[in-house]
């Protein structure tokens, strides 16, 4: 039953999977981690992106990664619009934004789910590309090529976003707005515009992340429910808003999932991210890797 090789296999796959989880969580790390938006619809946006990629791939034969890149500007605009709507209806009114803001995103997630079902049905969908379905062999170990693609793209995405947030003017403004909105206002910048921009970026990243999601495994309309657990687990564990923390937390989750899968079987897999999330929330709500002060 149990063998060391199997476990090693699980850890390697887990690390690759973890990088992929980081890629799908980065956007949430900005929108929820930095901007404090209760973005429960983040995973639904992600699945929506996957279906857009599927559509382009199925009907026009566009490579999934390219398709992901193509929809990125659209998602950016979508993000700008979504934040504006959220800001105008909740943040600006102030009182009791909590309850209704959460319900708002929950409702949006549901609408997206149903629209996908009505358009594409409940069946699983996948994409075709050269790198889907092949595998590398290293000795006894078999590493699916699609995971390697996801790993490379995810790593690149994380590095790019980290650089963006630390090196560019706008990136630094985004981090500043998360820490002290008033100070930024005093400096003559418009914090709302910056937050809107940041939310746009967070949503744009989902274009690529959605492509990765459907490259790694087939998608179905209700897949977002599982990813509520994964993405929030990663972001909360990372300590809100930390990009490098997001990568580390995602790898921990990836390894935990594959190891449990290997040891106990697939039927327990859905609960792992949620159990870790619950554990982190109950014991250390500020995250494992500190928090922005």
């Amino acid at each position: 039953m149990f063998s060391f090789e199997l476990l090693l296999d699980a850890v390697v796959i887990g690390v690759l999977l973890g990088c992929f989880y980081a890629a799908v969580s980065l956007g949430l790390s900005i929108s929820f981690g930095l901007l404090d938006v209760p973005h429960v619809a983040h995973p639904a946006f992600l699945v929506l992106a996957s279906y857009a990629v599927y559509f382009l791939n199925e009907h026009y034969g566009v490579d999934p990664l390219l398709a992901g890149l193509l929809i990125t500007p659209l998602f950016f605009l979508f993000g700008l619009f979504a934040y504006r709507l959220y800001y105008e209806t909740f943040e600006r009114r102030g009182s009791d934004a909590g309850v209704r803001g959460i319900a708002f995103f929950f409702g949006i997630a549901f609408i997206i789910e149903v629209l996908i079902i009505m358009q594409f049905g409940v069946d699983q969908r996948s994409v075709t590309a050269d790198y889907v379905g092949k595998a590398w062999r290293i000795g006894e170990m078999r590493i699916p090529f699609r995971l390697v693609v996801a790993f490379v793209v995810a790593a690149a995405l994380t590095i790019l976003l980290t650089l963006y947030l630390s090196r560019t003017f706008m990136g630094r403004a985004i981090r500043a707005v998360a820490q002290d909105q008033e100070a930024l206002r005093l400096m003559g910048a418009n914090p709302i515009r910056i937050k809107q921009w940041a939310f746009g970026i967070a949503t744009a990243v989902l274009g690529i992340a959605g492509a990765l999601l459907i490259i790694v495994a087939p998608v179905e309309p209700t897949l977002d429910r599982t990813y509520i657990g994964r993405t929030f687990c990663v972001v909360v564990m990372a300590g809100l808003g930390s990009m490098s923390g997001t990568l580390v937390a995602a790898i921990i989750l990836g390894v935990a999932e594959t190891v449990v899968l290997t040891l106990f079987g697939a039927s327990w897999a859905p609960a792992i991210s949620f159990a870790m999330l619950l554990g982190v929330l109950a014991v250390r709500p500020q995250g494992l890797f500190g928090r922005r002060s």
Partner: peptide, 12 residues
């Protein structure tokens, strides 16, 4: 939101 997410987690 932390409470809300925790309740989803418990459900799953």
């Amino acid at each position: 939101i932390f409470f809300s997410i925790a309740t989803i987690a418990a459900t799953i």
